[in-house]
Simulated assay, not measured.
Amino acid sequence: MNPQVRAITLDLDDTLWPFAPIGARVEVVQHAWLAEHCPRTAARFPLAEMRVLREAINAEHPHLAHDFSTLRRLTLARAMELAGDDPALAEPAFQAFYAERNRVECYPDAIGALQRIAARLPVAAITNGNADLARIGLREHFAFQLGASEHGAAKPDPGIFRAACERLGEAPHHVLHVGDDIELDVLGAHRAGLRTCWIHRDDLHPDPVWPHAHVRPDLAFPTLDALADWLDAHLQDDVA
């Protein structure tokens, strides 16, 4: 790949930290909050039933598919209404969920690699999720964070990638998008005209075989620090 990379866009979930442990915890924490503050809701909607309700709310609001936070608030309010609790408690219930959602444990290499990359190039976060870098404590390493809820459409829509490039002040072909998801990150960024880097961590891609013949990522690494090493080796002349 031509190393003329001037900026990085970076996925968050499953690129900087694994999402599965978060996804498992947040439902339990939310239910415990409901059991304490909205016991009728907790009794009527244990974990499995709350998931069913959330799927129904999602189906009712396809125009909000990019906005996980709003959909969860709507689900909580509906559950409370149906159970006879005060739907005004949906917001504090959401905040209990959201605090846990932002309690992340980064991959061992991630923070050091992020620091190295951000010292060399501007980095912008592009995420379909609702993580908050300021709450997590990583905001200082990013030029900005662009979420699907803010943009109005989720990856792999090319618009979210192009919007990030515009905010970075760089043409798409000078921006490298880095992420774990083949469709959302690599193919989506490729369609938008960005360079691409596939991070195929062992926990998600134990046998990292690229499945598409028509397009390949410009770069592929098992860790983020391997990308940082590549940037150090190939962009050193630009920094000197």
Rank of each mutant, 00 (worst) to 15 (best):
A43Y: 13
L121W: 12
P222K: 05
P21H: 03
Q95C: 09
G23V: 01
E183Y: 11
P3W: 10
L235R: 08
E91Q: 13
Q145I: 08
G193Q: 03
D225T: 03
A96H: 01
I117H: 03
Q145P: 02
G112R: 03
H214S: 15
A79N: 02
L194G: 01
P217E: 08
E49C: 08
E100D: 01
E36Q: 15
D238Q: 15
L133H: 09
D109T: 00
H205R: 06
T75E: 07
I22R: 00
W198H: 06
Q4W: 14
E105M: 00
E36F: 09
G23P: 03
L121K: 12
R40P: 08
T223C: 02
A171S: 15
V186R: 00
R195W: 01
D14L: 04
H63I: 09
F97N: 02
A32I: 02
N130G: 07
L89A: 12
L146K: 07
A124S: 13
R73N: 05
H63W: 11
V239Y: 14
F144G: 04
A220E: 10
A164V: 13
V215P: 03
H200C: 07
I160G: 04
I57H: 07
G152Q: 12
F68S: 01
L231S: 01
T196G: 07
L194M: 05
L133T: 13
G169F: 08
I182K: 00
F161T: 04
W17Y: 12
R216G: 10
R116P: 04
